[in-house]
Deep mutational scan, measured.
Amino acid sequence: KELVLALYDYQEKSPREVTMKKGDILTLLNSTNKDWWKVEVNGRQGFVPAAYVKKL
């Protein structure tokens, strides 16, 4: 599985998104969309802005 690092805090704005804190390590589930990547964090799956994370 591929991991990404949260570069910034992000507060979810819809049920399809997830909240993350700067420094969190997230599991990358899908990065086919250039703007929104699907990740898993704390057992929850959802989208975060691709610009807010970096592949490890």
Rank of each mutant, 00 (worst) to 15 (best):
Y8W: 11
Q11I: 15
K55T: 09
V39Q: 00
L26P: 02
A51Y: 10
S14Y: 07
V18I: 14
E12A: 14
Y10T: 01
V39T: 01
M20Q: 02
E17R: 05
I25T: 07
I25W: 05
E17F: 07
L26M: 15
L28H: 01
L28Y: 02
E40H: 05
G23E: 02
L29K: 05
Y10F: 08
R16E: 13
L29M: 08
E2D: 13
K22R: 12
D9Y: 05
A6Q: 01
V53W: 01
L3K: 11
K22T: 08
Y8A: 12
S14I: 05
P15W: 11
T27F: 13
A50R: 09
L26V: 07
M20S: 01
A50G: 04
E12L: 09
Y8G: 06
P49A: 02
N42K: 10
G43T: 05
L29C: 07
M20D: 00
N30S: 13
V18S: 02
L7V: 07
N33K: 07
T27A: 11
D9G: 06
D24A: 08
M20T: 03
A51T: 12
A6G: 03
K54I: 15
L56K: 04
D9Q: 04
L56R: 03
F47V: 07
T27I: 15
R16T: 13
Q45C: 10
Y8P: 00
A50P: 04
K22N: 04
V41A: 13
D9W: 04
E2V: 14
T32L: 10
G46C: 04
V4Q: 01
Y52M: 11
L56W: 10
L26I: 08
V39G: 00
V41G: 14
V53L: 15
I25A: 03
I25H: 05
I25Q: 05
V39S: 00
L5S: 05
D9F: 05
D35L: 15
T32C: 14
V53E: 00
G46K: 02
L56S: 04
K13Y: 05
S31C: 10
L3T: 10
L7E: 04
D35N: 14
L26Y: 12
L28T: 01
L7C: 07
L56Y: 10
E40A: 09
K34G: 11
E12R: 15
T19C: 06
R44A: 07
V4A: 13
V4E: 00
K55S: 09
R16P: 06
V48C: 05
V41P: 00
Y10E: 00
Y10H: 04
N33S: 11
V39K: 00
E12F: 07
S14L: 09
Y8R: 15
K13R: 12
V48T: 02
G23F: 05
K55C: 09
K21W: 11
Y8C: 12
E40W: 07
T27D: 06
K1G: 13
K13V: 10
Q11K: 13
Y10P: 01
V4D: 00
Q11W: 14
A51E: 09
Q45H: 09
P15T: 11
D9M: 04
R44N: 07
Q11T: 15
S31A: 13
K55R: 14
T27M: 11
A6E: 00
L3P: 04
G43Y: 06
W36C: 06
A6M: 02
D24S: 08
L7M: 11
W37E: 01
T32A: 13
S31Y: 09
Y52H: 07
G43V: 04
I25C: 06
G23Q: 02
K21M: 09
V48I: 09
V4F: 08
Q11L: 12
Q11N: 14
K22W: 04
W36D: 01
A6V: 11
E17G: 14
D24K: 03
V39H: 00
Q45M: 11
T27N: 09
R44D: 04
L28E: 01
L28Q: 01
K1C: 12
K54H: 10
W37A: 05
K55D: 04
E17Q: 12
S14N: 13
L5Y: 15
R44K: 12
F47S: 04
E40G: 06
S31M: 10
P15K: 11
P49S: 02
K38L: 15
K1P: 15
K54M: 15
Q45D: 08
L3V: 10
S14V: 05
T32D: 15
T27L: 14
L3E: 08
W37G: 00
T19P: 07
V4L: 14
P49Q: 02
R16G: 13
Y10S: 01
P15Y: 11
E17A: 06
G46I: 04
D9P: 06
W37R: 02
D24F: 05
M20C: 07
Y8M: 12
K54W: 10
V18G: 02
K21F: 13
T19A: 08
P15D: 13
K13D: 06
Q45V: 14
N33C: 10
F47I: 07
T32G: 11
K1W: 15
P49V: 02
L29W: 07
L56T: 07
D24G: 04
M20H: 01
G46A: 04
Y8L: 11
K38V: 14
V48K: 00
A51H: 11
K54A: 13
K13G: 08
E2H: 12
D35E: 14
K22I: 07
S14C: 09
W37K: 02
K34P: 15
V53I: 10
Q11D: 13
L3G: 03
D35H: 15
D35I: 15
K38C: 12
E40F: 07
W37Q: 01
L7H: 03
L5I: 15
Y52F: 14
S31N: 09
N30W: 09
N42S: 10
V53G: 01
V48M: 01
M20A: 02
G43K: 06
I25F: 07
L29P: 00
K21C: 10
L28M: 04
E40I: 08
K54N: 06
K13P: 05
K34N: 12
R16Q: 13
V48G: 00
P49F: 02
Q11G: 08
Y52C: 09
I25V: 12
L7K: 05
E17P: 05
D9T: 07
V53Q: 00
Q11C: 10
E17Y: 06
V41T: 13
K1R: 14
V39D: 00
I25N: 03
K1E: 11
Y8F: 13
K13S: 12
L3F: 15
R44S: 06
T19W: 04
L7Q: 05
N42H: 11
K13T: 14
D35C: 12
F47Y: 14
L29H: 06
N30I: 09
P15H: 13
S14E: 09
M20G: 00
V41K: 15
L28C: 07
V41E: 04
I25G: 01
V48S: 00
G23K: 02
G46P: 00
K38Q: 13
M20F: 13
P15E: 14
K34Q: 14
L3I: 10
N30T: 08
N42T: 07
P49I: 02
L28G: 01
T19E: 04
W37T: 03
K22E: 07
T19M: 05
Y8D: 08
G46E: 02
E2M: 13
G43I: 03
T27P: 15
E40R: 07
T32Y: 10
W37L: 05
E2A: 11
K55V: 13
A6T: 03
K54C: 14
Y52P: 00
L28K: 01
K55W: 08
K38S: 08
N42F: 11
W36R: 03
A6L: 02
K13M: 14
D24M: 15
F47A: 03
K55L: 15
S14R: 10
T19L: 03
A6I: 02
T32K: 12
K55A: 09
A50E: 03
D35K: 14
L7S: 03
T27K: 10
M20Y: 02
K38W: 14
F47Q: 04
L28S: 02
V48L: 02
L3C: 11
K21S: 10
A51S: 13
